[in-house]
C-alpha cells in the first residue's frame, strides 16, 4: 500500500491542505508541512511555483510570485522533500504546471520524485487528452498523476476517472482557485459518475474555506482540499504563520472527520 492509499484507508475522510513551496521561504514551508500533519492534515499538496499559473486565483498567484522572488527552484524543493522525508511519512503531492516539468525533463522530474519521496503530482494544464506527455515517465517511477474533474466535465468524467491514480481531484466550481462563499455544484451527482469507473478515492477542492463547507464536501466525497484559505494565512503572518495555520487546519480537519461519522 502506498502512502496515499494508506492515508485514505486510515482516515475514511481525508483533509488535504495546499501551500506554495518557498512562500515565504523553504524553511517556513518545512515547518508548515510538519505543523499541518500534526494538526490532522492527511495529505499535503505542495505547489511548485510557476511564473504564469493560469488555473490559480489571485491568492495563489501572489504566493507563487513571492516564492519565485525568494529564489525557490524545483531543485531546492526536491531538497526540501528529501529533508522532510527524514521526519514524516505524510503523503506529499506536488501541484505544478506542465512547463516546469517538461523543461526539467519529465523522466528526470519523476525519477527525482521517486528518489526524494513525492507520492503524486497534479498538473492542471495536462488534461486527459495530453496525459501521455507524463504517464510514460511517471508510472515507471510509481508517482501518481492525480487528474482533475470539473463541473463542466460531463461525458468526460468516466474516462478520466477510469485511468485516475492517487485520487480524483474534483473541482467544485467554475473558475480558478480561491475562496468562495457558496458552492452550488451538485457534487453528489459528479461523485456518483466518478465512482462508476474510478479505482481510487476522490476529494473536492476549489473555494472551500469554512468547516461547514469542508464537512459538506467531504461528506459528498472522500475528502476536502483547501489551498487559498491556508495560503492567505501564510501571506498574512509570514514566518509566524505555522501556529495560525495549525489552529485553522485543526478545526478544518476535525470538520472533515465529522463527515465520516
Amino acid at each position: 500500500m502506498n502512502r496515499i492509499e494508506a492515508a485514505f484507508a486510515k482516515q475514511k475522510k481525508v483533509f488535504i491542505g495546499f501551500i506554495t513551496a518557498g512562500d515565504p521561504t523553504l524553511a517556513v514551508t518545512k515547518e508548515l508541512v510538519l505543523t499541518m500533519e500534526k494538526a490532522g492534515c492527511g495529505i499535503v499538496e505542495l505547489g511548485i511555483p510557476f511564473s504564469d499559473p493560469v488555473a490559480e486565483g489571485i491568492v495563489v498567484q501572489r504566493a507563487d510570485t513571492r516564492a519565485l522572488a525568494a529564489g525557490t527552484t524545483t531543485d531546492k524543493i526536491f531538497d526540501l522533500v528529501a529533508e522532510l522525508r527524514k521526519e514524516t511519512q505524510v503523503p506529499l503531492v506536488f501541484l505544478t504546471y506542465a512547463n516546469p516539468i517538461y523543461t526539467y525533463g519529465a523522466d528526470r522530474f519523476f525519477a527525482k520524485c521517486e528518489e526524494t519521496g513525492v507520492d503524486g503530482v497534479i498538473i492542471p494544464d495536462i488534461p486527459y487528452e495530453e496525459r501521455e506527455e507524463m504517464l510514460p515517465y511517471s508510472r515507471p517511477h510509481h508517482v501518481a498523476v492525480v487528474p482533475l474533474v470539473a463541473p463542466t466535465s460531463r461525458d468526460r468524467i468516466q474516462k478520466i476517472s477510469a485511468v485516475a491514480e492517487g485520487y480524483v481531484y474534483l473541482v467544485s466550481s467554475l473558475g480558478v482557485t480561491g475562496v468562495r462563499e457558496n458552492i452550488t455544484t451538485d457534487m453528489e451527482a459528479i461523485v456518483k459518475e466518478v465512482r462508476k469507473t474510478a479505482k481510487v478515492p476522490c476529494a473536492v477542492g476549489f473555494g472551500i474555506s469554512t468547516p461547514e463547507q469542508a464537512k459538506k464536501m467531504a461528506a459528498a466525497s472522500d475528502g476536502a482540499i483547501v489551498g487559498s484559505a491556508i495560503v492567505k494565512i501564510v501571506e498574512a503572518h509570514g514566518e509566524d504563520s505555522p501556529r495560525y495555520v495549525y489552529d485553522y487546519v485543526k478545526e478544518m480537519a476535525a470538520a472533515v472527520r465529522e463527515a465520516a461519522k
Binding site: V54, P124, P127, Y128, E129, E133, A150, P151, T152
Partner: peptide, 10 residues
C-alpha cells in the same frame, strides 16, 4: 496540442 485545464476542455 491542447494543454488546458479540465474545466475548459469541453
Amino acid at each position: 496540442g491542447q494543454y488546458l485545464p479540465e474545466t475548459l476542455m469541453n
